[in-house]
């Protein structure tokens, strides 16, 4: 462990985002170190995707700072983006491309060449089980396969920072298990953020969990701490407790 390993790979300070009248993210701060898998939790509309879009440089924050691998995403967007693998919400893809041509396009942009390039493309195709569909156009794939291609594209350049918005949504139980194993196996080398509505996933792969609601940070700690807060020993119950209590205190209707 030397020089910049000391610094967190992802560092977020007082992040704020407004869409006109909607205040989607309200002054969130947290950081993620190498080796951590952060579970990003919160009811629908909490601001999870918006936060991820800002970390990956798709949206500009209204205020606050984001640094990825030491690079400020607004000051050095290219350098920061080189370090990031991102699976956007809903895994949008270029429908008319085949799986292989899509991965080749990403490899072009990521400036991957020669042996390394071919090896990486084969590796992700094997790991994510895409052999059978490699020449199929993306628009003809089933939802789960589309999601898998999205995951494959995020992993292609073996990024230090991995941001995945609901990576297991729409996957069958076997694939869910596979992707979790994959995340678990990569965890040591990377800083990973995954958002999810499946709380068992947090227990299974995450070393840390964050709960947000209405754009505000409500909990930041280990899944164990979260579990200990639950009298019934179920994550679902603490999640519901924390978020509904928050909405009640704010005098808002419960969202979920």
């Amino acid at each position: 462990m030397s020089d910049n390993n000391e610094k967190p790979l992802i560092e977020i300070k007082a992040l704020d985002k407004r869409f006109g009248a909607i205040h989607a993210v309200r002054g969130i701060s947290f950081s993620v170190n190498k080796g951590e898998v952060l579970g990003f939790l919160g009811p629908n509309g909490a601001g999870k995707s918006t936060t991820m879009k800002m970390i990956t440089g798709f949206l500009e924050p209204t205020s606050g700072n984001i640094s990825v691998a030491g690079y400020d995403i607004e000051v050095n967007p290219i350098e920061a983006k080189e370090k990031i693998g991102y699976l956007p919400e809903g895994a949008p893809l270029y429908g008319e491309m085949t799986v292989l041509s899509f991965l080749n396009f990403i490899a072009d942009i990521r400036k991957m060449h020669g042996q390394y390039r071919n090896r990486r493309i084969e590796e992700v195709i094997q790991k994510i089980h895409l052999d059978t569909v490699r020449d199929q156009t993306l628009e003809t794939l089933s939802k789960g396969y589309k999601r898998r291609v999205g995951v494959a594209h995020a992993l292609l350049h073996d990024p230090e920072v991995l941001i995945m918005d609901e990576p297991t949504d729409g996957l069958d139980p076997n694939q869910k298990h596979e992707v979790r194993t994959l995340i678990h196996d990569m965890a040591k080398e990377k800083a990973i953020i995954i958002s999810t509505h499946i709380l068992e996933e947090v227990d299974a792969v995450c070393t840390r969990a964050i709960i947000i609601a209405s754009g505000q940070l409500l909990f930041d700690g280990t899944p164990q701490t979260l579990l200990e807060m639950s009298p019934s020993g179920k994550l679902e119950d603490v999640f519901r407790d924390i978020t509904t209590r928050f909405y009640e205190e704010k005098g808002m209707a419960t969202h979920s």
Binding site: K81, I84, Y86, L93, R110
Partner: peptide, 11 residues
């Protein structure tokens, strides 16, 4: 189609 999010998060 949302692919702009892919494009704009590439380096």
């Amino acid at each position: 189609s949302g692919t702009i999010e892919l494009l704009m998060t590439l380096p």
